[in-house]
């Protein structure tokens, strides 16, 4: 009943799951859309890798990332809401905290895999479509690392919503609204919102080092530090909150 065996069990449930399709298709579509808009305009990306990154990752961070994680959350919890699975799950000696943590870990891992696919697709687009010189600069690997961590609270929140709501679409709708509101607040340069909203945190992380929205264009140590602090804080609060709710809740009929 260790957390690791729980996580292993959760990954085993993903066999033949639609989740993997989402993980590959969503980032690929984002990069493709970005590349197409450049091609249609008949321009080479003005700032090379930077422009390709902007057009795919920053746009992805505005709301498709939140929607993608929400869909993954609903896919991961969907089977638990079917037939006798909920009763069986709640009749195991596994603690609510472990269960919530394991589900969050799986959804976060899928979200992180999306960022890896994103890196791959951006590289392919830069080389194969635009024949950019050199490789994707290393700074984007660092940025991707921060993005991957910053999606953990988002995964925890969407996991919690999909745990509580039997509906597939409702948590996705919440993500859409949450990401929209957070983007407005980021546009208004209300920085501390990343400590309150997992949507804002993930979106802000995708803007790191790009100079868009409130970003200065540098990978500033203070910015990365506050993003990581917000990640740790929101992850703990969200996971603990979801576990406490699950522990108090009655099973539904």
């Amino acid at each position: 009943m260790t957390l690791m065996s729980m996580i292993a069990a959760e990954f085993a449930k993903l066999a033949r799951s639609l989740s993997w399709t989402v993980v590959v298709l969503l980032p690929a579509a984002m990069v493709l859309a970005g590349a197409l808009s450049s091609l249609v305009a008949g321009q080479q990306p003005a700032d090379g890798w930077h422009t390709v990154w902007l057009r795919s990752v920053v746009f992805y961070g505005l709301f498709p990332l939140a929607i993608g994680v929400a869909v993954l959350g609903s896919l991961v919890w969907r089977a638990e809401h079917r037939g006798g699975n909920w009763n069986a799950l709640m009749s195991t000696p596994v603690s609510s905290l472990r269960l919530v943590a394991a589900k969050t870990a799986v959804i976060a891992a899928l979200a992180m895999a999306m960022q890896l696919v994103m890196l791959l697709c951006v590289t392919v687009a830069g080389k194969a479509v635009f024949a950019l010189p050199g490789m994707l600069p290393a700074r984007y690997l660092l940025i991707s690392g921060v993005i991957m961590l910053a999606t953990v609270p988002l995964a925890a929140l969407q996991s919690g919503l999909s745990m509580l709501l039997r509906s597939f679409a409702a948590p996705v709708a919440v993500a859409f609204l949450g990401a929209g509101a957070s983007t407005v607040l980021l546009l208004a340069e209300i920085g501390p919102i990343v400590f309150l909203s997992p949507y804002a945190l993930a979106t802000r992380a995708t803007q790191l080092g790009t100079g868009t929205f409130a970003d200065g264009g540098e990978i500033a140590g203070a910015t990365v530090g506050s993003l990581l602090a917000a990640t740790a804080l929101l992850s703990l609060v969200t996971i603990a909150g979801a576990a406490a709710i699950l522990d108090r809740r009655d099973t539904r009929t």
Partner: peptide
């Protein structure tokens, strides 16, 4: 051990 209301099982597995 328990089995309440309907049997558990993940259909895709």
């Amino acid at each position: 051990g328990s089995l309440i209301e309907s049997p558990p099982g993940y259909g895709h597995l």
